[in-house]
Structures are given as structure tokens and as C-alpha cells.
Amino acid sequence: MDKTYYNPEDLKKFENVTDFQEKLGKKFFDYYGSVFEEGALTAREKSLIALAVAHAVQCPYCIDAYTEDTLEKGCSEEQMMEAVHVATAIRGGASLVHSVQMINKVDKLSM
């Protein structure tokens, strides 16, 4: 395989991060497990949010993991893509809303 920074096989080693710092690693995974349990939001809704966030943070591991997880949880392709559009809208909107600052500055500097 070509050398790259990301190797899909590495996802399976995620839990090994506890090797270097067991206490914090364990706390993280316990917390992680609790976050995704059924709660006020369903596990399915949480999985769709995770899929959207995975795209926002552009994590290839999370994209793989939550694509599979949303499929397993019965999400349709349309629902998955709409979740990604939500992430895209927020990311794009976050850039665009800053243009108000640009406009303010233009107003200030212009005659």
C-alpha cells in the first residue's frame, strides 16, 4: 500500500491510545460510549449528527465509522446526504457571515 498519513486499519487501533495515558483514555471512551446511548435524542439521531460533524472536522476515520453506523441504524442515503449538507451550510455560512465584517470595514474605509 502507498504510504499515507491515514490508514483505515488504524481505526481499529483507536483504543490503544490508552497505552500512553490509561486514566484519561479510559475516561474518554466511557464518556464516548455514554454520549451515543439512547437519550433525549435517539441513537440514530446521534449517529446522523456524528456523520455531519465528521464531515465538518474532515476526519476520514469518523466518516467511515459513521457512514457504516448510519447505514446500520436504517438511515437512507438522502438523510445521510442532508446531514452532510447541514455541516456544509454551517461551515459555508460561518465563512460567509464574516463577510459582514468585511462590509463593515469597507464602509469604514470608503468615502
Partner: peptide
Amino acid sequence: VYNPVGAFLPGDQESLKKQ
């Protein structure tokens, strides 16, 4: 009968039934 359309496992039966 639901069965996954692809190389993944079925999710929770109750949740799929509801959907």
C-alpha cells in the same frame, strides 16, 4: 423482513421497525 443492502450488519430491530 429487513436485511442490509450491502456489507454491513442490521441495526436494532425495534428502532428499524419503528422507522
